[in-house]
């Protein structure tokens, strides 16, 4: 029993300007709930741009996008933000934690913003997430007091904070050494395989892409 979570139809993103640039061109795509998708392609091919569109961070200039059956292209910025907060989680390449906040506080931020859990429930959720990612000892540390791999795990915990439908990760191991990369890759894979999350990862690493359910290859902004 499959359920289409995300559907794109001729999705496109152009930048207007003196020299118009096409970032993403006529993408048709269907992603099922629980799928583990890898997006690959050469540098500058438009992988990130596609991810921003799928993750409702950016709005398409053409085509349509359905999330859980709801067409989103007419939604305003605040509505998209609310969807991101409740249903989507993001992990970026590196250094995307708030530097003045501890690991625990960074993870708690989206929960507090959403305001659905009371204070004790929110706190215990944060502790559970940190523990499950092996960050119990790091909870009180600031980002600069942790390694790159630990930072990236905090970012994953934060992405999971509001129990999203989809996790988007844009080259999450791009700045990590081999050992830390392996840990982060295992975590993302387990989120899909063991916990049933839908995970969409942009990666340059062929061996990581090989472990996915499906690899989408992008060249010049289009599916190759």
């Amino acid at each position: 029993m499959t359920e289409v979570l995300l559907r794109a139809e001729r999705l496109g993103r152009k930048l207007e300007g003196d020299v118009p640039v096409t970032l993403v061109h006529d993408i048709d795509l269907e992603i099922q709930r629980g799928e583990f998708i890898a997006i690959t392609g050469p540098s500058g091919s438009g992988k990130s741009s596609l991810l921003y569109l799928l993750g409702l961070l950016d709005q398409p200039t053409s085509g349509r996008l359905w999330l859980e059956g709801v067409e989103t292209s007419s939604f305003d910025e605040d509505r998209l933000a609310d969807i991101r907060l409740a249903r989507l989680g993001f992990v970026f390449q590196a250094n995307f934690l708030l530097p003045e906040f501890s690991a625990r506080e960074n993870v708690q931020l989206p929960i507090s913003r959403r305001g659905k859990l009371d204070e004790p429930a929110a706190r215990s959720r944060v502790e559970d997430l940190l523990a499950s990612l092996g960050l119990k000892e790091q909870a009180d540390k600031l980002p600069h007091q942790m390694s790159g791999g630990q930072n990236q795990r905090v970012a994953i915990a934060r992405a999971l904070a509001n129990d999203p439908s989809i996790i988007f990760a844009d080259e999450p191991t791009g700045n990590l050494d081999t050992a830390a990369s392996a840990v982060v890759q295992t975590i993302l894979k387990d989120l899909a395989r063991k916990q049933g999350h839908t995970v969409i990862v942009v990666t340059h690493d062929p061996s990581f892409a090989a472990q996915s359910d499906r690899t989408i290859r992008i060249v010049d902004g289009a599916i190759a």
Binding site: G55, L57, E77, D78, A81, D82, I83, R84, L85, A86, F90, N95, F96, L97, L98, P99, L109, P110, R113, R114, R158
Partner: peptide, 14 residues
């Protein structure tokens, strides 16, 4: 960058 983090997480412009 922090503003981008907050907004991508789902914080509103307001």
């Amino acid at each position: 960058r922090d503003i981008a983090i907050l907004k991508s997480t789902g914080f509103h412009a307001r």
